[in-house]
Simulated scan of single mutants.
Amino acid sequence: MTTAREIMTEDAECIGAEETVLEAAKKMTRMGVGALPICGTDDRLKGMLTDRDIVVKVLGAGKDPAQVKAGELAQGEAVTIGADDDAQEIMRTMSEHKVRRLPVIDGHRLVGIVAQADVARALPDPQVGDLLQALSTD
């Protein structure tokens, strides 16, 4: 069975918890991504920051993105997947938590990101449909 390590995007870059949301937006633009892991000064994953978070929780709320810290938007414990977990476990975790991207952890270290599209390429067609349906329903 295909593992997260085999299908993930390696070398995921974090946004520091103390960096601003404006810095995060610039980094997303430069990298061409819609989400960044939020890492603390202890090099541990604190959460994920998405472009939607920036729009809804910062801009839409009338806050200044140059003043809001990325760490302020980290909510609870981050949903992650182990580097050696298989595609079925990734699909289950994405479906259960209704997330389209999962940080991949090896021990406590961030080693990559698995996106919905990565999983879709690794699964047989009927299971891809199940994943897309699970992520698309409220």
Score class of each variant (00 low, 15 high):
1 M>H: 06
102 L>M: 08
126 P>S: 10
76 G>E: 11
103 P>Q: 01
32 G>V: 09
115 A>Y: 02
101 R>Q: 08
95 S>G: 15
27 K>H: 06
104 V>M: 09
61 A>H: 06
65 P>S: 10
129 G>W: 09
74 A>N: 09
135 L>M: 15
75 Q>V: 15
48 M>Y: 01
64 D>Q: 14
99 V>C: 05
35 A>N: 08
34 G>P: 04
6 E>N: 10
116 Q>G: 07
123 L>Y: 10
132 L>W: 15
79 V>C: 09
94 M>G: 01
15 I>S: 02
90 I>W: 04
47 G>C: 07
57 K>G: 03
128 V>G: 07
51 D>F: 01
43 D>W: 00
132 L>K: 13
16 G>A: 14
129 G>T: 11
37 P>I: 04
1 M>A: 03
26 K>P: 02
117 A>I: 08
63 K>V: 04
98 K>N: 10
67 Q>N: 13
40 G>S: 00
66 A>S: 15
106 D>F: 05
85 D>E: 13
90 I>N: 00
131 L>V: 15
108 H>F: 00
14 C>S: 14
9 T>V: 09
85 D>S: 06
36 L>A: 04
127 Q>D: 15
66 A>W: 12
123 L>I: 14
116 Q>S: 06
135 L>C: 12
125 D>E: 15
53 D>E: 11
125 D>H: 07
11 D>F: 07
56 V>H: 04
122 A>Q: 03
11 D>Y: 00
57 K>C: 10
103 P>F: 02
87 A>F: 04
79 V>R: 05
75 Q>D: 12
55 V>G: 08
20 T>M: 14
26 K>H: 13
101 R>P: 08
54 I>R: 07
8 M>A: 11
125 D>K: 13
56 V>C: 09
14 C>Y: 09
11 D>C: 06
101 R>K: 10
5 R>Q: 12
41 T>F: 01
10 E>W: 11
